[in-house]
Simulated scan of single mutants.
Amino acid sequence: MLVFHSDAHSLALPPGHRFPQDKYRMLRAALEADPGLIRLQAADAASEGELALVHSPSYLDAVLQGHLSAAQQREIGFPWSPSMVERSRRSVGATIMAARAALAEGLAANLAGGTHHAQEDKGSGYCVFNDVAVAARLMQAEWHRRYGHSRPGLKVLVIDLDVHQGNGTATIFSGDNSVFTFSMHGENNFPFRKAASDLDVELPDGCGDEAYLAALDRALAQVWQRLEPPTGLAFYLAGADPHEGDRLGRLKLTTAGLRERDRRVFEALRERRIPVALSMAGGYGHDVAVTVALQVSTLREAAHSWSAWQAPQ
């Protein structure tokens, strides 16, 4: 299974900053030490034209040229620097490459991504550009260039299981019948003003494995009922932050519960032959090594599903 990384460029963060940027390097190192079925590849940077499929010219100029105001930088949560721009562009590029690989092989992943709070004209919550939205728009455009009117347009499903609602993605695709957005998240967590996804499931603080998995099963059943076939590509944001050890999550999933969450999502998509591009999304454990282990587990489940996808039908 192809897995794309983009951790070569560091953020210029002040001491004590809550964003765990070391996680990405540690995650790649863990996979390099024991790759199994995973093939690691460095990501290319998304081009300005690709980013412009979603983001406004004024916002792109502010980010790329270093014109973000102090207020804009505070909302993003990162100080501007050239390395912040390059890191953000390569994180989007990794999701683009994962989406192309998923369409070819059934499943691929980005070791970062899931920057679902970014909207057309602003960043927010550690999200500069919306990687899933850009990749979805680009895959739809490439599909149209390849098939024209000989096939229906590419329909996209977003399954967002980060503990925080995907408000930016929901806003970008609001009213767009070609993209179905599903977010299951903590009702009392950031963002405190939620947007409207096509399907939102809000969970109470302290929600554990049994209640979470039951809610996921009900929600996926609704997705399959409401989704207009054929759906040609899914994006799965597999946040580690619903875990009981997360500093920001407020939910209580165990390690086994998160693994079962991932297994159910991958199995449901594989049964329907829907290719999926995986993004690791959030994870803010008190011990970053625990978060890395959780995300390695997600990638192992993904690789197992990729292997099953390759089996003759």
Rank of each mutant, 00 (worst) to 15 (best):
C207A: 11
C207I: 15
F235S: 05
I159S: 10
A170D: 06
S91A: 14
R270M: 05
E142Q: 15
S6C: 14
F19C: 09
L107M: 06
V132K: 00
D209P: 03
L216C: 01
M97D: 13
N188R: 15
F129M: 01
D241P: 07
R28W: 00
H67Y: 04
V156I: 14
E50C: 07
S178I: 00
E120W: 03
A195H: 01
S47E: 10
G148W: 11
Y147A: 03
W143H: 13
R90N: 11
A62M: 09
T291Y: 14
L60P: 00
S58L: 15
I172E: 06
R100L: 03
A46H: 02
R193T: 13
R273G: 12
A308F: 06
D262T: 10
D198F: 13
D198G: 06
S183H: 12
D176A: 08
L199H: 07
S81K: 07
S56N: 11
Y126R: 01
L107A: 13
L103V: 04
G148Y: 10
L11Y: 12
G206F: 08
R90L: 10
S178F: 00
Y236M: 10
Q72T: 00
H55P: 15
F78I: 09
Q313H: 13
D121M: 03
H9N: 12
A268F: 06
L53M: 05
R261Q: 11
V179Y: 11
Q72E: 13
G206I: 11
A133K: 07
G36M: 00
V290G: 01
Y147W: 15
C127L: 04
A219K: 01
L111S: 00
D287H: 06
V296A: 02
S10T: 10
H5L: 02
N110K: 04
G175T: 13
P275W: 02
R145K: 02
D205I: 10
D198I: 07
S197F: 13
L2Y: 11
V158P: 02
E301I: 00
H9F: 12
S56H: 09
L258M: 13
Q295A: 08
S305G: 04
R226E: 08
G125T: 08
A195V: 06
A33G: 07
T115D: 04
P191V: 14
G175A: 06
L233R: 05
R259K: 15
G16Q: 14
G208V: 02
Q41K: 12
F235D: 03
A302W: 00
S124Y: 01
R25T: 06
V223N: 08
L269E: 03
S124L: 04
Y284D: 05
A240S: 05
A112C: 11
M84Y: 11
R87G: 08
R137H: 09
E142T: 14
P230Y: 02
H144P: 01
R226Y: 11
T181L: 07
